[in-house]
Design a protein around this nucleic acid. Structure first.
Lengths: 209, 209
DNA sequence: TAACATAGTTAGCGATGCTTACATTCGCGT
DNA sequence: ACGCGAATGTAAGCATCGCTAACTATGTTA
């Protein structure tokens, strides 16, 4: 059982209860789904009483939003890590970002749904949107490189969007069990690569050196 | 306010309580989300006591599954109706099916999510899957026509899948508000048509007359 | 070291909402 | 006409949880 970061586990004062609650919630949500998740479970896992969280979060929703935000940030880090080792601005790098997206969904399906859900986030949707845009930005940058564009312009946006749409849909189909091995022996890598190639325009000669 | 089909509204015996509960649930879920939906609300809407549903459904989940099933059937009818007036086996017909898919999601986002969710359906997932396959079949048939294939073979499957994936993802992005007009002035028709064209292979000369 | 802010505890309120045991009423076949 | 079974009503059980009020313990600062 891997102990968590910033574990002080001292006595009364916890050290980083806020952070621990987020990661406790993360684990529990993955295990029982966002509905099966209860505050007291999170408290039990963090080793505090049921009232303690309310020093750090105004409500259960507030905590859930934090978990979602955390997920979006990790998704971005994932995506970056995937693209980095590959030759930049290539189909492969773009496909790798997509693969990272789907893998995240597979690894943490409940969190993934939570991240893109609008409900359970009260008045903080705009905040989430902003973090989400940063994750999307990883793809935008890579596509810009592919297209040889020096900034995120309209062409980059229009090119990236169907790619996002595709992996987003693929993610949901996978985690919702629509791709059972019998009827859909889908090779995810192949699916992503095919769609990426099909949806990208031919790589232009570099004119703006 | 359109009265529902099979409305008898007689006295004690209801006529078609089962059907009415499904459509009541449908309306309520669309209004308050699947979580905000309660049995007693459905009962109130159908004009019966809270115990009455249990003569027709074994549980709340059971009713929800029925609503989902109903949705999948209606989705299929929708898709068929969209493709029918258009020249068969064309890009346009295929795109129209996709558009129907997204429109359904927009029209009934909560039901749409419920239809593809795995939870809330207890032991009836296989049943739902089967109904879902029928909806997907509409696309498969159209793609088969496009490809000039006389049956649903592997090529048809492989060609159809990314199309489904794309509109599925698009649907979720739309209903989850990721395409706000400011940052994503996405023309849905255009998006679908572009993806459909990109993901379909060139139309083959018809050899099997 | 006194005083104050911060973090956590204990106890419990209050509301919700599914489900069931049992009574009741109606439609239909005989 | 009548009786049986299906359909609905009544009433309540009961478990779950989110959240709060009031209290206690620790850390920090002057």
């Amino acid at each position: 059982m891997a102990e968590n970061k910033t574990q002080k586990k001292a006595g009364y004062h916890h050290g980083d209860l806020r952070g621990q609650l987020v990661s406790a919630a993360r684990r529990l949500i993955e295990e029982h789904g966002p509905d099966g998740f209860t505050m007291s479970d999170a408290c039990k896992l963090a080793g505090v009483s049921t009232a303690a969280p309310y020093r750090h979060f105004s409500s259960k929703e507030d905590l859930l939003t934090e978990v979602a935000k955390d997920g979006l940030i990790r998704l971005r880090q994932d995506s970056e890590a995937r693209a980095q080792p590959l030759p930049r601005g290539t189909v492969e790098a773009i496909a790798a970002i997509g693969r990272g997206y789907v893998d995240f969904a597979i690894r943490e399906p409940h969190i993934f749904r939570l991240m893109f859900s609008t409900k359970s986030h009260a008045g903080r949707i705009e905040e989430l949107r902003s973090v989400g845009r940063q994750s999307y930005g990883v793809l935008l940058n890579e596509v810009a490189l592919y297209l040889g564009e020096s900034e995120i312009n309209d062409l980059v946006n229009r090119t990236s969007f169907p790619l996002w749409t595709h992996v987003h849909g693929l993610s949901f189909l996978v985690i919702d069990g629509k791709l059972d091995v019998n009827n859909f022996p889908v090779d995810i890598d192949e699916a992503i690569l095919f769609a990426t190639k099909s949806l990208l325009p031919p790589k232009p000669r570099l004119e703006k050196a």
